[in-house]
């Protein structure tokens, strides 16, 4: 599929396309933005809690710093953890899920029992307890922990995909045609799962953002630096919701996080069209 084809498919679903654009904007802003927009660290006590104006696009925080610059710089940590988590959990889920589906038998039953148990345990309380017990001051550690709790959901989905593909006619056909196991795995099974894996990666990211920001909000992650979650926590603790001037301080990070989540999920709709030929032209 050529890039122009992919581009056309992207555009076919309007919501998905909108999500894609917004997602790209947020990613650009968080990773490229910091080089363009300098972080405002000067404390200006005579300009605290200013409403949005031309000088300060999103107003100022409790110490007179420009909220817009804080937002631009605040995404990097959150998004890095999200991407890392998505990566780790998708990797684990993919391997364990396909292994389980492919091998079958008692190993499969055992692995699925573990997956079931993990799925039943409510994720956030477990994370909260772990975060209180273990000091999470490192992005990688946090991502690893988040991934350790998200892989079961994806693994189950991957396994069911593998199972359904395993029994499909074209696998039988490939086997009959004696095309070899390697070929079967890479040329027949993989392309069909790929779309699924990518979409689940995005969902893992959104789940990671939910957990991460939640943990930060409860003060369980000793972070420093610029971080959307931290902004929300600071603003909340200082009662920013009660005054008009300070409203932006808490609203801005909430809105940008909400936008990120929404755009990621909307984007998966376009991804579905790209990966599943049957959905194309369904409009």
């Amino acid at each position: 599929m050529s890039p122009t084809d992919i581009y056309k498919l992207l555009k076919s679903d309007k919501t998905g396309f909108a999500g894609f654009i917004v997602l790209m904007c947020i990613l650009l802003m968080s990773f490229v933005g910091p080089f363009i927009v300098p972080l405002d660290t000067t404390v200006k006590l005579n300009e605290i809690y200013q409403s949005p104006s031309f000088k300060y696009w999103l107003g100022t925080d409790n110490m007179g710093r420009d909220i817009f610059s804080l937002i631009v710089h605040g995404g990097k940590d959150v998004l890095i953890v999200a991407i890392l988590t998505g990566f780790f959990s998708t990797l684990i889920a993919f391997f364990l899920g396909s292994f389980s589906g492919f091998v079958g038998g008692k190993m499969d039953t055992f692995l699925m029992w573990i997956v079931d148990v993990f799925l039943t345990i409510p994720r956030f309380p477990l994370l909260a307890v772990l975060a209180a017990v273990v000091t999470l001051d490192n992005n990688y550690l946090l991502a690893a922990l988040l991934a350790a709790l998200s892989w079961p959901g994806l693994a189950r989905a991957v396994r069911s995909q593998v199972l359904s593909i395993k029994t499909r006619d074209y696998i039988e056909a490939a086997r009959v045609l004696d095309l070899g196991t390697r070929h079967i795995i890479f040329k027949e099974i993989l392309p069909n799962i790929m779309g699924y894996v990518v979409i689940n990666f995005i969902f893992a990211m959104t789940a990671a953002v939910y957990s991460q920001v939640g943990l930060i909000f409860l003060g369980l992650i000793p972070l420093s630096g610029q971080n959307w979650g931290l902004m929300i926590q600071f603003a909340w603790v200082r009662g920013a919701i009660f005054y008009n001037g300070s409203l932006m301080y808490i609203l801005a990070p909430i809105i940008v996080i909400a936008l990120f989540q929404w755009s990621a999920i909307a984007f998966t709709r376009s991804l579905e069209t790209i990966f599943n030929p049957r959905l194309r032209g369904a409009k």
Partner: peptide, 8 residues
């Protein structure tokens, strides 16, 4: 509404 984290 389903995209926004519920606590936010």
């Amino acid at each position: 509404t389903t995209a926004i984290p519920n606590y936010l």
